[in-house]
Design a protein around this nucleic acid. Sequence first.
DNA 1: GCTTGTGGAAATGTCAGACATTTACTAGAC
DNA 2: GTCTAGTAAATGTCTGACATTTCCACAAGC
Lengths: 239, 239
Amino acid sequence: MTLDALPPHQGGAEQLARLLAQALLAGHWQPGDVFPRELDIGKHFAVSRNQVRNALTSLTAAGLLERTAGRGTLVREVGDWHLLDPLMSEWMTGLVNLDPQLVRAIYAFRFSAEPVVAGLAAQAAQAEDIERLESAYAGMESSAGSVEARAEHAEYDVAFHDATYRASHNLVWRQMGHLLRPSIMALIHRSQHRTDTLDDSLARHRQVLDAIRSHDASAAETAAREVLRRTAIDLGIVS
Amino acid sequence: MTLDALPPHQGGAEQLARLLAQALLAGHWQPGDVFPRELDIGKHFAVSRNQVRNALTSLTAAGLLERTAGRGTLVREVGDWHLLDPLMSEWMTGLVNLDPQLVRAIYAFRFSAEPVVAGLAAQAAQAEDIERLESAYAGMESSAGSVEARAEHAEYDVAFHDATYRASHNLVWRQMGHLLRPSIMALIHRSQHRTDTLDDSLARHRQVLDAIRSHDASAAETAAREVLRRTAIDLGIVS
DNA sequence: GCTTGTGGAAATGTCAGACATTTACTAGAC
DNA sequence: GTCTAGTAAATGTCTGACATTTCCACAAGC
């Protein structure tokens, strides 16, 4: 794989890192492949070697690449990727065609984890957590009508689930909220977001909100599971 | 807080990064504090500015620091730390006195998550997963007798739990295995690891192994919970 | 007095070039 | 054939200079 297929870039090392990371996430290189050399990348994108090194440092920290002096830069396999690195979430979010394997893995994780998180949230939620949830839910409701507001709707969706993780009041679970963004953003590209499915999704989110508000842990678990069943349909994982 | 209290260092930027990270994790600086400047750090440890920048880049990527041109380097609050970054796990592992707040947060996470993971593992485990679990369990068993083998025992303990996460065959859960090391290593410093508690812990691990081996998800969940109850006692979280 | 702008100091960010180190491959001696 | 020395090629490191951003002090003007 060469760099020729990649679009030009504009901006600093962060932009370059995103560009290269998304190419890797999209599968332009196979695990074990040698990645282009620093100087070639710099020449191709007309940036200094410094910028290239900064970008590659990020990709290495995210577990996408493995660099060795003398040998060069190798592409690591999917199992080594740091899917929980916030940078990864950011890169995945902007990717239109995320690898279905990844979408499914993240969904399977959420399906097993999010009910537990919702249960914890029901136990630990404070007033401000409830407020965040209500505010996010209100946003989802107000943007559910129009098709053109689907991006806005997705943002409120992310905010709702993130608020759930935060309400668990556990530092580790909270960090995991980053994973939600790419997962929910994939919904935009994979589903038609028809009005009736949106209404159904909204109703299921409301169940979660109500359960957490009334501190009913088992109800929150059940409701979260129902939300994710809806999500699975919209993602095309099940019919 | 100044650098004077820190021990000298030897080696590359990675060593320096570990040193500074562990000082931060130990609470030598408060959130919002200004971190020493690049040049001062370089002068103090007698390393080039390059090394300092590389080290600080790691800490920034881990969410420990926030750097802005012109302003300087600020220490971020605990809620922003990337606890799931493998580098963080590595730094935490070597820290003798990990912040009790962190130990408790990680334990609370494990207590809520690990039963689910064990359940998934029981469903998804392949032959090689069972082998890994058995091998780790055998190691725990053989190193349970002597007090001087407690470090070795901890390694097998980590391997056992890591094998559980891997057996779930989910890319996200698998990444989370990194968190186990600091959590389990904290056991060494916080408990006497007396023989009878070790035997009890061993027996509970065996229950997990047996449940996964027989693909009994609910039994695996229960058994994992029992292991963690034992862990809570050893960590001093409950009596 | 309050705002506004202007300058300088101080910090991180960037660049360019040379050099160091590691690795893999190749050619030659035996 | 096998071992060894040498060479090329890649990433890693150092250094010094410069760029950029931010904050602060101070003064001009309304």
